[in-house]
């Protein structure tokens, strides 16, 4: 059986997902992805009318059941210092990160 997710495609997905994997992790994950895709292919068995709508959620939202759009009013968080306490690296109220790679536009 040919794997749908080949090693090359898998490497591409890992890059897109901003991950790094050990060899063992990569082998396990690629196998699981291919197994899941075999289960997903069950969906191909359903004759699907192209007019069948896409459901991005199950419960319909009507004007009666939907919240009004709230007014666009700025509300300051009362304690910004508390928010910054969770940041891994802070200097003078700025969150510090490594260099952002630059790329010359062609």
């Amino acid at each position: 059986m040919t794997d749908e997710i080949t090693p090359e495609l898998f490497e591409h997905l890992v890059e897109l997902a901003a991950l790094e994997l050990s060899v063992e992790e990569g082998e396990y994950l690629r196998r699981q992805l291919n197994n899941q895709l075999m289960a997903i292919h069950e969906l191909q068995a359903i004759p699907l009318d192209p007019a069948t709508p896409i459901a991005s959620h199950g419960v319909p939202y009507t004007p009666e059941t939907s919240a009004h759009i709230r007014e666009d009013i700025l509300k300051s968080y009362p304690d910004p210092a508390k928010l910054l306490e969770g940041a891994p690296d802070v200097q003078e109220n700025y969150i510090v990160v490594p260099d952002i790679p630059h790329q010359s536009l062609k």
Binding site: I40, Q44, L48, I54, S56
Partner: peptide, 11 residues
């Protein structure tokens, strides 16, 4: 998109 259509059928 196919999965979302099948979601419609389940609904």
């Amino acid at each position: 998109n196919r999965a979302l259509r099948i979601r419609s059928l389940i609904r």
